[in-house]
Design a protein around this nucleic acid. Structure first.
Lengths: 241, 241
DNA sequence: GAGTGGTCTAGACCACTTG
DNA sequence: AAGTGGTCTAGACCACTCT
């Protein structure tokens, strides 16, 4: 756990400006001495910062700070956590929450047979009182049945599930643009055809089992998603439809 | 370089189906013996596969294959390389290529002063003869002047720049949705207002210097971008406008 | 030439999963 | 209880950058 503490400490240093953008970072040996850790542990911490796009390195030269804004994994999946981290007030309006047979795409994403029961939750998400996103989330039966209608009406289903022992470990997001359907338009209070940013997300737990599958549609002018991407770490990909 | 060879070899094993999706992976000790490497080197190879979203791991249990489609970094920045990897034929129609003073956003992204000369290249990109994207790329003066009009007319400017010694190391992409402007609509042959997937990309070389800044707008129903994302590796983030 | 990051090894102990 | 991944150490050699 030492390398995590060190990484967090260094990240804090970047965030507070102790290590400014473009500035040269302390060397591995220097930090090893400062933290009383081996060089390997320092490098492990650096690997985290590199994956997150904070540091860049070249053989022979000191590391350089290349980015300072970082987002937590929870904030990425949870609309509520994300909104609060930006200083906005999130809210949710429950449109529907029902148990019904899985459609083909839901079944495939959740690894159940077509027609097996799944839970479908439809909500409109608000930012400071303004409707900005329509969320349609499917849960496997075992997970959806942990949730009540009141849970779905509360803001963060993510937090509730985590408090009930569900662990989120990994997510695949597919981002595309689409025109608002009649239903989307009605829920968001805009005209049909309005550009929406669509993200289809499949989230799994540490064993690789699916825990949710969600189709979220944001007003195009409200949010953007950003990705950092390098020769060595390369999580983004592009697909034709 | 050993760990890269091992990672590539294992990735090939996943791609060919030797290690199927969801299947348990060989243990670290087993692979260390097989490749004649230390456990640390095997773990280094595993780290690459994890970053790319191929493997998931839990303490105490064997690793599991969780994803098998992987994309090369070049294919992500280069429309041409990407198109060819999917079996489509890419093309480019040059709309404009000029040297002119940088606007505020271009200057900020390329780390030059506002008004300093930059090169701006505007192209329509085609997939199997169909216009699918408008690309507006700004280059710093030193890089843009390596390119001729003929280069800009040729498909892959990325490849040309790499052959002239420019190294691409890292990119930040911001993805959002927007309505086609009048100019976009004319270039793409669609109606204004049509939903477009917009990606604004800033690419840097290994020292962190900006090499290009591009605003690409795809027809919304043609491509999607996908991102893999986990508790430990977390390159995606979300922003309000 | 000194400093720095990149790679690799060998061994240790721990926490967790699995049979 | 055995196997497996997670963490950490100490030391080595190399390739590259810097001044």
């Amino acid at each position: 756990m030492l390398y995590r503490r060190i990484a967090a400490d260094l990240k804090r240093g970047v965030a507070t400006g102790e290590f400014g953008e473009r500035s040269r970072f302390p060397s591995e040996n220097e930090l090893a001495a400062r933290y009383g850790a081996s060089r390997g542990t320092i490098r492990r911490a650096f690997a985290m910062l590199r994956e997150e796009g904070v540091l860049a390195s070249r053989q022979g030269a000191r590391r350089v700070v290349v980015g300072s804004q970082v987002q937590d994994f929870t904030e990425l999946r949870s609309f509520s956590a994300w909104a609060r981290s930006t200083g906005s007030t999130p809210d949710a309006r429950l449109v529907g929450f029902e148990r019904r047979p899985a459609l083909a795409d839901e079944a495939a994403a959740l690894d159940v047979a077509k027609g097996d029961p799944v839970w479908l939750m439809t909500r409109v998400r608000l930012l400071d009182g303004r409707a900005v996103m329509v969320e349609r989330t499917a849960f496997p039966d075992g997970i959806g049945s942990l949730l009540t209608d009141d849970d779905a009406r509360a803001g963060s289903v993510t937090t509730i599930l985590e408090s009930r022992g569900i662990t989120f470990d990994r997510a695949e997001h597919a981002l595309s643009a689409m025109a608002a359907t009649a239903a989307d338009a009605r829920l968001l209070g805009v005209r049909p055809g309005r550009p929406l940013l669509r993200t289809v997300r499949r989230t799994t737990d540490p064993s690789g089992a699916a825990v949710e599958y969600s189709d979220d549609r944001y007003l195009g002018d409200v949010v953007s998603f950003s990705v950092v991407n390098s020769v060595s770490a390369n999580p983004l990909s592009r697909r034709t439809h």
